[in-house]
Design a protein around this nucleic acid. Sequence first.
DNA 1: GTGGTCTAGACCACA
DNA 2: GTGGTCTAGACCACA
Lengths: 134, 134, 134, 134
Amino acid sequence: MSQPFQILVVPGQRAPIYRQIVDQVRIAVATKILQAGDRLPSVRALAQELVVNPNTVAKAYAELVREGVLESQPGRGMTVAEKRTVYTVKERRRRFEVALQAFVHEAVCLDIAETEIQEAVAEALAQLNRQQEK
Amino acid sequence: MSQPFQILVVPGQRAPIYRQIVDQVRIAVATKILQAGDRLPSVRALAQELVVNPNTVAKAYAELVREGVLESQPGRGMTVAEKRTVYTVKERRRRFEVALQAFVHEAVCLDIAETEIQEAVAEALAQLNRQQEK
Amino acid sequence: MSQPFQILVVPGQRAPIYRQIVDQVRIAVATKILQAGDRLPSVRALAQELVVNPNTVAKAYAELVREGVLESQPGRGMTVAEKRTVYTVKERRRRFEVALQAFVHEAVCLDIAETEIQEAVAEALAQLNRQQEK
Amino acid sequence: MSQPFQILVVPGQRAPIYRQIVDQVRIAVATKILQAGDRLPSVRALAQELVVNPNTVAKAYAELVREGVLESQPGRGMTVAEKRTVYTVKERRRRFEVALQAFVHEAVCLDIAETEIQEAVAEALAQLNRQQEK
DNA sequence: GTGGTCTAGACCACA
DNA sequence: GTGGTCTAGACCACA
C-alpha cells in the first residue's frame, strides 16, 4: 500500500458495519490513499482486527467488487481495481441527489445556518484534496 | 395553525415514512410554519389523510414528543411545545459532522465535481427556503 | 403480477443458488413477464417454496436492489422498479464481453460446430422475443 | 508437437488459472494443434514457464487425464491420448444449452441489441479460428 | 493460506 | 407481517 491505511468501525452508528467498511475503502480509493493494484487485508485478518464476523467483511468486499472498486483474484486475495466508471451519468446523478437530500435535510433539522452548511462542505472538500496531495 | 401546513409522504423514498413525518414537522417548527401552541391533526386523521398505518403516525408523534418538539395534552391532542433546545451544541455538531462526511464521501466517490457539489447544496437550500415562504 | 411467474432453482448447478434467483428475476423483468410495480414473493415465502435458507433469497434480492431492478419498500416487501439504465455503455460492453468469451469457450470446448452455435443463439433470442410478445 | 503450442494464462481473469490451462489444452486438441501422442511440458516446467503454483498445473493435468484428453505415461510424462468421445452427445447438448441460456440472458439483461449479439458471437468465433491457424 | 456460498438462527426497524 | 444486519460455523474452490 502506498500509504498506511486504517479502517475504523463504530458499532453504535446508524450505518451498518459492512457499509462503514465499504465507504472507507471507497473514499480511500477515491483519494488515492489506496491505488490500483494495492492489496487489502484478507477477509479473516480484517474481521479479526475489527472484532467483527468474517461474513460482514466478506459482504463489504463483495459489494466493492460488484461496484468495480476491488478485484478478487481467486486464492490470492483482494486488490484495488483499475479505475473504471461503472454507473451512467444519470445513475450517478440519482445517487448524488439521494445523498444530497439526506444531508441537507439533516442539516436543516439540526438548525445549522445555511452559510455554515456551505462553509462546512467547502472545508470538507478542501480536506479531501489535501489528503490526495499527500 | 399560523399557516396552512401540509405533510407529504412519498412511499418509494429511502427515508421511512415515520421519519418523513418527523422531519417535516421538525422543519415546520424550525421555520416557524408551526408555532408554539399550534395543534396537529390527530393520529387517526393524519393516518387517513396520508393513507398510512396509524401505528406509523403514532410512532412519529411519539418521537417528536420524546424530542420535546410536540406535547401531548390529554383531550386536546398534540400541540407544538414551547421552544427549548433539544440537542446540546456539541451533539448537534457531532451529528452534523457525521452527515457532512457521509455526503461528501458519497459525492467524491461518484466523481461529482467540487463546484457542482457546492452549487447543488446551494440549490437544495434555496429550494427549502422557497418551500418555507409558501 | 401480469403473468404467472415461477422461479426454479437447481442445486447441482455450478451457478450458486442466489445467482440463479438473480438471473431468473432479471430475465423475467427484461422480457416483461414481470413489470414495474409488480410484487415479488417475500423473502421468507420464496425461501420456503425453494426449500432454501431465507438469507440466500435475501442476498439475491439485495443484489437486484443494488442493480436497480427491484425496490425495497420498508415493511411492505419488494417490487419491480421502473426501468433505469444503471451501467455505462462501457461497463455494459465489459460485462457482455466476459459473458461472450465464457460462452464461446464452453461451446468450442464442447466441440459444437460454429454454424450450430450461431443458430442456437438465434433460436434462443427468438424464443425470448416470443415470451415478450405474450 | 506438430505445431508450436503456447499456453497463456491471465491471472486477472474470471476463469481460474487451472481452468484456463485445461481449456487451452482442450481447444488445442480439438483443433488439432496438439495431436495424439504429442508430449506436453512437465508439471514443473509449465509451472515455471507460467509463473504459477505447480499444484495448479497438476490439477489441470489431472482433470484432463480424468476426461481422457491426456494420458500419463510413467517416465515419459503427459501425452495427448487417442481421441475418444468424452461426453455423450446428450451430455454435450445439455452443457451447451446451459451455457447458451446463461449467455443470452446476460446479454438481454444488459440490453444489447440482437444483431449486435449475433455479430459479437460471429466475431469471437472468427477470432478463435485465426488463433488456430497461427 | 485466499475468497465464495450456504445454513441456522438472532435481533432490529418498519408498516 | 415485511426486509436488513449480524454472528457462528460449515464446506467448497483455488493457489
